[in-house]
Design a protein around this nucleic acid. Sequence first.
DNA 1: CGGACGATTGAACGTCATCAATCGATGTGG
DNA 2: CCACATCGATTGATGACGTTCAATCGTCCG
Lengths: 230, 230
Amino acid sequence: MTVGLDCARCPVRERAACAALAPDERERLAKLGHHRRVARGETVFAAGDSNAVCATLTEGALKIVRYDRDGNERILSLIHPAGFVGEMFSPVAHHDIVALTESRLCVFSRPQYEAIVSDHPELTAALLRRAAEELLETRELIDLAGRKSAEARVAGLILAFARAASHSPCHPADRFTLPLSRGEMASLLGLTIETVSRQLGKLEAKGLIEREGARGLALRDPRALEALVD
Amino acid sequence: MTVGLDCARCPVRERAACAALAPDERERLAKLGHHRRVARGETVFAAGDSNAVCATLTEGALKIVRYDRDGNERILSLIHPAGFVGEMFSPVAHHDIVALTESRLCVFSRPQYEAIVSDHPELTAALLRRAAEELLETRELIDLAGRKSAEARVAGLILAFARAASHSPCHPADRFTLPLSRGEMASLLGLTIETVSRQLGKLEAKGLIEREGARGLALRDPRALEALVD
DNA sequence: CGGACGATTGAACGTCATCAATCGATGTGG
DNA sequence: CCACATCGATTGATGACGTTCAATCGTCCG
């Protein structure tokens, strides 16, 4: 399902890379792209594809994944709204990109996008900025997944989600829904589903969190959680 | 120890980001920077620094690290020659950058470097390309450190080093010296020193590798190693 | 209501971390 | 030149922690 672009109503029009463009130039870009809606679980781009497209995520969330030979998926990164996906310097895509929830993207053909980029240094700079942020986040993930105890990993992931859910930059949300299934959390942290489930149970028993169904979560003692992360 | 720059003798003059500049513009940039030599183990930039500099690595190797409250270091990334370090979009540095071996860098003040960047879109594009490569490498690391068995992680790391040591792109070197200590390998893989040591011993007992002193390594059966990685 | 899927819980096992001793290489001082 | 200190690497013994296998529960949809 694809339709034309309407930047005026775009929820990330101020934060995405294209915000760097002047309005008339953004119009020119918009004419080249189209909107695409993807369902939860749908593969947006696949590894091995000729990699002729790139996109900005406007709503929802994506995961960048790799599958080992047994078919187990390993999550390499999460993409949030305003994030940019597509390997601009690689002839074929290295990884699969899958929708975590129902999502919307602005999709562009790569050659056309590159043409605009090379005409507009401010867009290049915006993409560089996005890449730098992405790099920092990915290193955070390495740090998180490298903690020794399962408890520290799960606590850290909960806090990361709480911060992402809160729109105020510093204070974490005290009540939110987990964007990931247990299996996805396990894949992100290098644990098993069972261990994640057990650690959540333990944190709840300690009174640090409260589970509300499978996806809902409330923070009861954020400071104690932080202390667990190290 | 710092001296002026001499791009004509720079070993990475064709691959580093500054290669994107025209010769006369590169001269202008060179006048603003200086060369710095750092010893093994020396901290090049420290987390919390006001982050007023950035640099291109010309020789040697660096690690980007974070320390937990017990003082244990966690390696977040490795930097190879032609790599660029410095967070251009952050007022203070997030991570420490430490020399793995004796290294040489071209150091620039960030405001001056940014001025050149904003004048030269081709330099911005080169930095974007570097960031994209860095991102791919970091995701490789996540994948590697996320494997379930210690054996798969160590085997994967050995192969990664063998590929990096070989200048021919596809075939791994069959004999090289490890750029990391046991402790650094452990930190990279989320294991302990002892486990890394034991896994190396086991791989040697299986006839897949041969150790030559603490740092030397010869691949006896690369294909069997690949099979272990999954 | 029944089926499917994700989440939870339990029990047993195995792997890796931990603690500790030894080895080996390197470098310094007597 | 050798004794000794130092640091990294190796090896061993032990136990904790997370995985694995399996059963059950709960929720969502047909």
